[in-house]
């Protein structure tokens, strides 16, 4: 089952510079594990140590944010397009959770 995955600039060090890679999986969680098997380390940049999706990473299936589709349990179908974007966020108020994003 082929899923096209669009990789943001900041994570292209894991994909040899590729903007788009192919992956497989029935859910986002499966897809990330599949990607990590070929692009080692990428999964750790997207998940918290507890195994949830980082609040400040956006993952979309086609046009929808996976947070509205069951997060890591979001179902995938052949031909879906998954986009990963670092959320654009910040601000004057510093808090510890912010540092989790950086690998």
């Amino acid at each position: 089952m082929a899923i096209e995955v669009r990789i943001p600039t900041i994570l292209r060090t894991y994909t040899g510079g590729a903007k788009t890679v192919e992956g497989a999986g029935d859910t986002i969680a499966d897809l990330l594990s599949d990607l990590d098997s070929r692009h080692s380390g990428i999964k750790a940049r997207l998940l918290t140590p507890e195994g949830g999706l980082h609040r400040f990473v956006n993952v979309y299936v086609n046009d929808e944010d996976v947070r509205f589709l069951g997060a890591l349990d979001a179902k995938l179908n052949d031909g879906d397009s998954v986009t990963i974007l670092p959320a654009v966020a910040g601000g004057a108020f510093a808090f510890a959770a912010a540092h989790a994003l950086r690998g």
Partner: peptide, 13 residues
């Protein structure tokens, strides 16, 4: 940039 800004900065270019 605050520490938050630095942590979240996701566009290296």
């Amino acid at each position: 940039p605050s520490r938050t800004d630095v942590s979240f900065a996701g566009e290296p270019n």
